[in-house]
Simulated assay, not measured.
Amino acid sequence: MSRRKQVTPPRPLAVGDVVAAHSVDLGEWTAAQVVRLNADSQTAAVLELDWSGPEPSSVADLGDVAPLKLTHHSWNGTLSFCNHEWVLPRSHKVIGATRLLHGGPANSWASGWHLGDQLARQRRWDRGVHEDPVVPWKVECTGEKVNELLSRPAAPRSEVMHLTIRDIDSLDCAQLVQRFPALTRLHLSGRLGLLSHADDLCQLISLQRISIVDLLGMTKEDCLKPLRVSELESVDLYGIPAGYASVMRKTWHPEIPAGTFVSIHRARKPEWVEENRNNPLRDWDGREQISATTYKRAVAQYRTTRRAVIEAFAEEPADTRPARMEEIGRFYGEAFNQLDQRSGFIETVEREELFEALDHIMNEAEALHGPSVENARGSLISGVESVRDW
Rank of each mutant, 00 (worst) to 15 (best):
T294A: 07
D236Q: 08
H187R: 15
A39K: 04
S206L: 15
L358D: 03
T184L: 13
D285N: 13
G103W: 02
V229M: 11
L49R: 06
Y332N: 07
R152H: 06
S234D: 05
D132H: 00
V129W: 05
A376G: 01
Q175M: 03
E353V: 12
W125Y: 04
G27H: 14
L47A: 05
T164Q: 14
E326L: 03
E288H: 12
K250S: 08
L207I: 14
A174E: 07
E255P: 01
G193S: 10
A154R: 10
T219D: 07
A21W: 07
L216P: 00
L380F: 15
V387F: 07
R90I: 12
D25R: 13
R388C: 04
A258D: 08
A39E: 05
V35K: 00
C223L: 02
D172R: 07
E274F: 05
R303Y: 10
D319G: 01
Q178L: 11
E274S: 12
H197R: 08
F336A: 03
Y302F: 14
I168M: 14
A367D: 11
W113N: 01
L232E: 06
K145E: 11
S57Q: 15
I210F: 05
E311M: 14
G96E: 12
G143H: 10
P280N: 11
V94D: 03
G27V: 13
R282Q: 09
T184K: 14
M161C: 10
V65T: 15
L171R: 12
W284G: 09
L368V: 07
T43V: 01
V24Y: 08
V235R: 07
Y238G: 06
A267Q: 03
I240F: 02
L188G: 05
S246W: 01
E350T: 09
F313S: 07
D389P: 00
W51R: 08
P270L: 05
R4Y: 03
S343H: 13
H187I: 12
T260M: 10
V139Q: 11
L13C: 01
D199V: 14
I328L: 13
E144K: 15
I361K: 11
W86A: 01
E353P: 09
R249F: 02
C173I: 09
D25Y: 12
R277D: 04
V134R: 10
R249L: 05
D389A: 08
V7T: 12
P257V: 04
V15S: 04
D169H: 14
T78R: 02
A314P: 07
T305W: 04
E231H: 14
S246Q: 10
V7S: 06
E364G: 06
V129A: 10
S158F: 04
F313P: 02
W86R: 00
L195H: 11
E353A: 15
V235Q: 06
Q178W: 07
D340I: 00
L119E: 04
A365Q: 08
T293H: 03
I256M: 10
H130C: 05
R11H: 05
W109A: 00
E288D: 13
T304K: 14
S382G: 13
E48K: 02
E356M: 13
R330G: 05
R277E: 04
Q42L: 02
V87A: 01
I210R: 08
R179K: 15
L224M: 12
A44Y: 02
G333I: 09
W51S: 05
V34Y: 00
P12L: 09
L183C: 11
S382F: 12
V373C: 06
H162E: 14
S206Y: 14
T348P: 01
D285Q: 14
D132K: 00
E85C: 04
